[in-house]
């Protein structure tokens, strides 16, 4: 008997412990919901920026970091209120379809093409178009994210710009299907080339104690620019979305304070993003 009472007491405590905080958590889960891409979250930019946003505006913001494709889908289905993404052509299409409203450019970083120091294909210093042509001609190993992320979209765009089809069926074209850092690691193992955002490359560099096997070979081409924008979820499509709050966020991100903070954000002493709000 004593044991039964003990057990039921333990169970009751367990339930209290579980359901009370759960309902609290659900009640407090009101506020702005954002979908963003892994690069803003992984670099720690949002962890650095968002507490300031809350301090300035009193708006609690939460975000889920996914690929750009899924982030757009979440907005289309009204599961989030605002997007911070980096795939301008897709964003424009998205707005034209009536899902998004009021796109505002916030900042950019850039992509680079990296490869082994020995550069067997010989692409160093070339522009993007020539570099990719050289890789194709030499059938040099090229590792792609292959996950339809913003970075992957950008890479496909670069291949398309060469005027020839994407070499997806070639056996020197490896689709990793993983995150950027894992993809860089695959590239290193295979002694191949890949395209990455500079932030992730800096991270990779630091992990190798500044002695990375893969070096930046192609950079600075205008086409390699990676533009981040805030896009509101269209209230016509999603009447329940908090459009006013989303615009407040958009304004803040484009405002002088956030722009300054973005410019000052450093990873391993190197700037990751360049603010460029108009």
């Amino acid at each position: 008997m004593k044991k039964t009472r003990f057990l039921s007491m333990a169970l009751a405590t367990l339930m209290l412990f579980t359901f009370l905080p759960l309902s609290n958590a659900m009640a407090s889960e009101k506020g702005l919901m954002m979908a963003t891409t892994t690069s803003t979250d992984n670099t720690g930019l949002l962890d650095y920026l968002m507490p300031q946003f809350k301090k300035d505006t009193g708006i609690a913001i939460k975000w889920t970091a996914t690929g750009t494709g899924k982030a757009l889908k979440l907005g289309q289905r009204c599961d989030v209120d605002v997007l911070l993404v980096h795939a301008p052509p897709a964003e424009k299409k998205y707005i034209d379809a009536g899902y998004g409203k009021n796109r505002r450019e916030i900042m950019y970083n850039d992509f680079v093409i990296i490869g082994p120091d020995t550069d067997p294909a010989g692409i160093k210093g070339k522009n993007v178009r020539d570099a990719l042509e050289t890789i194709r001609k030499n059938k040099a190993t090229f590792v792609s994210r292959g996950d339809d992320s913003g970075t992957n979209k950008k890479e496909k765009l670069l291949w398309n710009a060469t005027g020839k089809p994407l070499p997806e069926k070639e056996n020197w074209y490896v689709q990793a299907g993983q995150g950027m850092l894992s993809t860089i690691n695959v590239t290193e193992e295979r002694q191949g080339y890949t395209m990455t955002d500079r932030g992730t490359y800096i991270k990779y560099q630091s992990q190798k104690q500044d002695q990375p096997m893969l070096k930046v070979l192609v950079q600075g081409d205008a086409i390699l620019l990676n533009q981040y924008s805030v896009v509101g979820v269209n209230p016509k499509n999603c009447p329940n979305a908090k459009y006013a709050l989303a615009m407040e966020f958009s304004d803040w991100m484009a405002g002088p304070r956030a722009q300054k903070l973005i410019g000052e954000f450093r990873l391993l002493g190197k700037p990751l993003f360049t603010p460029n709000a108009k």
Binding site: A25, E29, C78, D79, N240
Partner: peptide, 14 residues
């Protein structure tokens, strides 16, 4: 999801 049949309960991301 907000557009799903149970969207009104706001369970997504909770």
């Amino acid at each position: 999801s907000n557009q799903g049949p149970l969207g009104e309960f706001n369970l997504l991301f909770s």
